[in-house]
């Protein structure tokens, strides 16, 4: 009896179950499951979209950053180039200025040396003249002193002649 009452489906329950369960199934399918499943799908789609958009935005920002970095690097390189050029120009300017100054200095030095040499030569020449005149003067005085008498003059001539003879032989 116990088992029988358990495994024997009662007609009434089958009847009500079939009727009400199917009715609820259709009502829920139309008014509950459809909006719920659609809502879930839409939300999932919107979340996926948002994530995709966020990812895209992140990528864009990364790309922008990369571009910015590129620009920065280019600017830096350009600055380097400009600086280098400026330095070059400065160096060149300085070098040319130095060269010109050196050349001018050299020229001035050369001129000075020339002047000095000329002065020196002139001075030497003058000195030579002075010395020559002094020598002549001295020689005149000595000659006047030594060759005042004719004997002495003759002795000298003889001596010179002798010497000349010596030289000739």
């Amino acid at each position: 009896m116990l088992l029988a009452s358990l495994v024997e489906p009662s007609f009434g329950l089958i009847f009500w179950m079939t009727l009400s369960f199917l009715a609820v199934l259709f009502i829920l399918a139309k008014f509950a499951w459809k909006p719920i499943l659609n809502g879930l799908k839409e939300r999932e789609a919107s979340i996926a979209d948002s994530l995709n958009e966020a990812k895209k935005a992140r990528e864009e920002i990364a790309a922008m950053n990369a571009r910015n970095e590129d620009l920065m690097r280019e600017a830096r390189e350009e600055r380097e180039v400009l600086l280098k050029e400026a330095r070059d120009i400065r160096d060149r300017e300085i070098a040319t200025a130095k060269e010109r100054a050196k050349a001018e200095g050299d020229a001035m030095l050369a001129r000075a040396r020339e002047d000095i040499r000329n002065e020196k030569n002139a001075a030497i020449a003058e000195m030579k003249n002075e010395v020559a005149q002094l020598s002549i003067l001295v020689a005149e005085r000595i000659l006047k002193e030594k060759l005042g008498d004719p004997a002495a003059q003759k002795a000298l001539v003889d001596k010179v002649m002798a010497e000349a003879d010596q030289r000739k032989s």
Partner: peptide
Amino acid sequence: FISVAKAYT
């Protein structure tokens, strides 16, 4: 589930 469905819409 109908009230939940309303919440979803």
